[in-house]
Design a protein around this nucleic acid. Structure first.
Lengths: 259, 259
DNA sequence: GAGCGTGTTCGACATTACCGAAAGGGTCCC
DNA sequence: GGGACCCTTTCGGTAATGTCGAACACGCTC
């Protein structure tokens, strides 16, 4: 583990979380490093455009280079590429917004977002990072991870996002067990008040979870009287179709799904 | 300039440009480094989720972390935040797709993209990186940069994207001079065959160029009989309005514009 | 105008990461 | 099925490398 790079990554993470503009001293304090150390790292990051410095205040923020990289990541994402079409048709069929997401650390990252097909103004959430425990895609993925990874997720710290967010190990373990029984995950206002989600896991060629696909929207439309079952069916079918496109043999996927 | 971080950044750049999946040896060759060196750097980057390793092929690609960072960059971008509304109204007024962009190195990065308000299917280009010399926003920005930065841009290497891309120093210098005279830039199929663009510079509080705003679309709609002048007016007015929102005093902006 | 708080520079120390060589693991071809 | 290749990965010595304390320069507040 090469130290300076670790520290550089830590700086990027600090700049990326919450407060967008930070000074050298603030960063140094948060990371427990000496000022000159942080300064040197920042200089290098600035040179490569991963960090930008406000010329007047001297404070630092993320640079445009990270956006470029993010875009390159999307371009190269096989999961995203393979799911574009099926996400589109799921959005049409369900008449709801659709997310394709993958797990990164303890957060779920939105790789693709199809707007609800009704011309209302909606904001784009590609790149958004949501705590795994507070969203349907997160549950769908966590439920089918190798046992030790699931355990690692369950053992971490969690903060609630709404009054309904499940954070205890017991509640989440139970939720995941239910996901495994049903084959899909339901989230009811655990990330945003008023919004619900239904998601199902996507499996890769090797039979491991690669991500999840699902619908998001107002709770009264998604979970009201019976709509739930139809949506769940549409979502799981999409997930299976994408898994197939990714090359997941029935064998691997089914094995994981039934463990 | 701290070496390992530079190399790590170089690895990210290599993974981000073109070929999405690369092996250790390939990366080492491209950067002229020893294999174990690259391996160590990669391990660290993988740990921080900036790079991902395909478990079956062993090859490396960008990780989901960079997408998360890219999103954080957008969230923190003052230029983007301040231009959202005016970009929207420009799109309505011009009835064309609108870009807000900024310069990163020699490329122009799309920070915000408003679709043409006509319900046709369009792809999102936020995060896209376009060579500065091949697009209207690039010209608009380059024309108002401090002299030495303009010179640096002009002295670099350029490759044509279409048959109409200007690449010589003379042609570009002339184009920039014209931008300075007019106050806006026009690009005619230099990036994509069939597409044109009109863009004007946005100035920051300090009177320096912060980015550009402009319209993009089919050449026959943008540059046909007189449409050009109306669009140019709408674009420059938007650019001025955004500059004002950013806090650019008339003094600074005008000074730069008239230098 | 003094005092504090920044971001920044300098230079010595020893930690740190680099690289050559060689070992595991996989796949393809014969 | 054996062999040869290519790939990623491990090891350990070396010296280059980054780290950190102390001091500098600048702007802001009081």
């Amino acid at each position: 583990m090469i130290q300076s790079v670790e520290r550089a990554a830590a700086i990027l993470a600090v700049l990326g979380s919450g407060t967008p503009r930070l000074g050298v001293t603030e960063i140094a304090d948060r990371l427990g490093l000496a000022k000159p150390t942080v300064f040197g790292l920042l200089r290098t990051l600035v040179k490569h455009d991963l960090v930008a410095q406000d010329p007047v205040s001297g404070k630092y923020s993320l640079g445009a280079g990270v956006l470029q990289l993010g875009n390159a990541y999307l371009d190269g994402s096989e999961l995203r590429a393979r799911s574009l079409l099926r996400a589109e048709s799921l959005a049409q069929r369900a008449n709801e917004a659709v997310w394709v997401a993958t797990l990164s650390g303890t957060r779920v990252i939105v790789l693709h977002h199809v707007f609800r097909p009704d011309n209302t103004v909606q904001i784009l959430e590609v790149g958004a990072a949501i705590p795994w425990h507070a969203c349907a895609p997160g549950h769908a993925i966590a439920a089918y991870l190798p046992a030790e990874q699931t355990a690692a997720l369950l053992s971490g710290e969690r903060t609630p996002l709404t009054g309904r967010t499940k954070t205890t190990r017991a509640a989440l373990g139970q939720a995941l067990a239910q996901v495994r029984r049903r084959g899909y995950a339901i989230e009811n206002q655990e990330a945003t008040v008023g919004d619900a989600g239904i998601a199902a896991p996507i499996f890769s060629r090797e039979g491991t979870v690669a991500g999840a696909v699902g619908v998001v929207g107002p709770v009264e439309r998604l979970l009201g009287r019976g709509a739930e079952d139809d949506l769940a069916r549409a979502v799981t079918e999409s997930a299976r179709a994408i898994s197939r496109d990714l090359g997941a043999g029935r064998g691997g996927a089914v094995l994981s799904a039934l463990r």
